[in-house]
Every structure is written in structure tokens, then in C-alpha cells.
């Protein structure tokens, strides 16, 4: 094997080598800022008529690259999506990079290029950044942190508190693709699959509907999957969620891997889906709109907010019931441990 150039500690010392790394890897893909005047911080042209929304997220994934994405695209989509589900148009990102000594330079280049492409597609500019190199053994290859800044019209008023009994729960596409894609890329399960991560921006799904009357709440199900978001909603609004297993979209390939390894697809991470709680009068309209977009082609109505008779109790919170495909019923619990493959 030809030894490819690798990241060294010296490239994180803040001197010439660091500048070279930034120029040849990061700025090469992001482009030189037009208005760069040597300052240590970026001034942002934000509109005074809009609300400014900010979010931050750290990213670590093993392996760094997987079918359908990599940590670079993930770091853009994860943060952009957190803005989008709040109804904010993603505008700017900052990027913190922690590289473990020894990471192949080629791989870093691929990931940064992918990050730049994802940012370009999502319409966000990377306005500030930082690079550090950690000694070998002190990091999982590469960690990224992105902070996202977006703006939204003041008319957007979503929140769990607005959810009412009888509201409809929608999901924008099949669940579990990202979780299975990463798992198959990570573990030598000797299962070959065609599952690609759903890593992508959900802004096109969220922004056009965010200020609709009757769109109560949007959330992207990432770690912990659909079940965890459903649980957060039930806890947050104090009402029960009743989901119908037969209506929850899960790809056949994801279902098969789950059958073999004993995973529950509802707990697997997604990186390009949205769960919505909407008023029943507009459920069909939102669903039709989602299904008309490539990002929402597999959208489905998966449940309702129930328990009309029960008083809303935010202290106790609601629970999530799943009506199984055979008509049975069970509770979907919050995730306790990381899902593990079964051993029998």
C-alpha cells in the first residue's frame, strides 16, 4: 500500500503549516471570502425585520464516510435542519474542526469537499471556522462542530404547546435509512445492503409550510429516531401519541436488516426526515405538498394525537402507543441504551 500523506500535529500549531492546511483544504473548497479584510470575526448582514435563530451541534460518526453521505455533509445537514424545523431559512454556518493526527489528507479533502457541496446546495455560507489537530488516540479521526444562523418571519409560531388532541402526525419519508447505512458501513455483519443514508436538507419541506395556520410543530428525527421524537412530543405537549405501525414507512431493505439483527427501525437515526404535528384540516394539504417534492416522496400520515378525554398534563407527559400491524398495541419507550445487535 502506498502511504498517503497524513495530518500531522504540526499542522495544528497555528503557524505556517496550519495556514497551508486551511488554504489548501478548507479555502480550496469553500472559496476565499469576498469581503475578507483580515478581521478575526465575520460581520453578518441580517435583516432587522426578521427573527434571528441560532443553533449548534457537534458531529462524530464512525466510519467518517458511509453510503449516502459523510461527516462533512452530516455537519451541514444536521445544523441546517435544526434551523429549518424552527421555520428559519439557514443563512450562515461556522465550522469547528478537530482532526486526529494521522487522518489521511485525501480523506479530509473528500469530506471537506462534500461539506462545501452540501453547504452550497443548502444555500448557507461558511463565515467562520477553526482547526485543531489532536494527538493520535485522542479523537475518532475527525470531529466537526457547526453553528448555524438563520432568520424567520415573526409570524412563525410553532411549538409543542400548540399541539392539540386530534392533530395528525406526519413523517416526510421512510425511517431508519441513515442508522442502517452507517451500521452496515461500520460493522462486518456480512450483510451487503443497498441502504443509503437519507442525509439531506429538510429546508424545502419545512420553510414553505412553517407559517401555515395549523402547522403546530416540526422536528427532525436524528439520534433515537422516530420513537424518540414521538416521545419528546408526547412529553412536551402532555398528550398521548397514537402511531399506526402499518402506516410508518420503512424500506424493505431496512426492515430486513432490522429483522436479522433485532433492531427496532423506529429508534434508528434519520438525517433527512421531518416529523410534523398538524391540525387535521390541513394534514392532507401538507402531505400532498411533501409528496410533490423529491425530499418528501415517501411522506405518510402515521398517527394522531389522542386522549381527548384526558387533561393535558405536562408534568406527567403523554405516552406513545403503537398500534401494531396486526392490531395489537404497545408502548414505544424512550431509548435506554444504544441499540445493539442481538446475540441469540
Amino acid at each position: 500500500m502506498i502511504d498517503t500523506p497524513r495530518i500531522t500535529l504540526a499542522q495544528g500549531n497555528g503557524g505556517r503549516l496550519t495556514k497551508e492546511l486551511i488554504d489548501t483544504v478548507f479555502l480550496r473548497h469553500f472559496g476565499q471570502p469576498e469581503d475578507h479584510d483580515g478581521l478575526d470575526a465575520a460581520a453578518l448582514p441580517l435583516s432587522p425585520d426578521l427573527e434571528t435563530v441560532v443553533t449548534t451541534d457537534g458531529f462524530s460518526v464512525e466510519p467518517l464516510e458511509f453510503p449516502g453521505g459523510d461527516i462533512g455533509s452530516l455537519a451541514v445537514h444536521g445544523t441546517v435542519n435544526d434551523l429549518a424545523v424552527c421555520g428559519a431559512t439557514p443563512l450562515f454556518l461556522t465550522l469547528g474542526v478537530m482532526i486526529e493526527e494521522g487522518l489521511p489528507l485525501d480523506q479530509l479533502n473528500r469530506i471537506v469537499e462534500s461539506l462545501a457541496i452540501a453547504a452550497h446546495r443548502a444555500g448557507v455560507r461558511i463565515v467562520a471556522g477553526d482547526t485543531k489537530v489532536l494527538p493520535i488516540g485522542h479523537g475518532g479521526g475527525l470531529y466537526l462542530t457547526t453553528t448555524g444562523i438563520g432568520q424567520r418571519p415573526p409570524s412563525v409560531r410553532m411549538g409543542m404547546g400548540q399541539i392539540e388532541s386530534g392533530d395528525v402526525i406526519l413523517v416526510s419519508g421512510p425511517v431508519g435509512d441513515h442508522g442502517i447505512s452507517v451500521m452496515l458501513a461500520r460493522e462486518a455483519f456480512e450483510l451487503s445492503g443497498s441502504v443509503r443514508s437519507d442525509s439531506g436538507s429538510v429546508a424545502p419541506l419545512c420553510l414553505p409550510i412553517a407559517d401555515f395556520d395549523g402547522v403546530r410543530f416540526l422536528r427532525d428525527p436524528t439520534r433515537g429516531g422516530l420513537a424518540t421524537v414521538a416521545h419528546e412530543i408526547a412529553q412536551g405537549c402532555g398528550l398521548d401519541l397514537i402511531l399506526s405501525e402499518a402506516d410508518i414507512p420503512v424500506r424493505d431493505a431496512v426492515r430486513s436488516v432490522c429483522e436479522i439483527l433485532g433492531y427496532d427501525p423506529y429508534y434508528l437515526a434519520c438525517e433527512g426526515r421531518v416529523v410534523a404535528a398538524v391540525a387535521p384540516q390541513i394534514a392532507e394539504q401538507v402531505l400532498t405538498f411533501w409528496q410533490s417534492l423529491p425530499e418528501g416522496a415517501g411522506a405518510a400520515r402515521i398517527g394522531i394525537v389522542g386522549d381527548a378525554g384526558k387533561a393535558r398534563d405536562r408534568q406527567v407527559g403523554g405516552k406513545v402507543c403503537l398500534i401494531t400491524a396486526l392490531g395489537g398495541q404497545r408502548v414505544l419507550d424512550p431509548l435506554e441504551d444504544d441499540p445493539l445487535p442481538r446475540i441469540c
Binding site: L326, G327, Q329, R330
Partner: peptide
């Protein structure tokens, strides 16, 4: 088999079977 018991529980089978049938998880 724990996998069987999991599938039975997660599909809610006990609730939809005739009441005469008892499904027992054994050494699995």
C-alpha cells in the same frame, strides 16, 4: 428465543390471539 419473545411482544401478539392461548417466554 429472545428474538421470538421480542417479536411477539413488539407485534402485540398476545392481545390479538384467542384468550385460550398463553405464550410463555422460556430459556431464550
Amino acid at each position: 428465543c429472545g428474538g421470538h419473545e421480542r417479536s411477539i411482544s413488539m407485534a402485540g401478539l398476545r392481545a390479538v390471539l384467542p384468550s385460550q392461548i398463553t405464550l410463555i417466554p422460556g430459556p431464550g
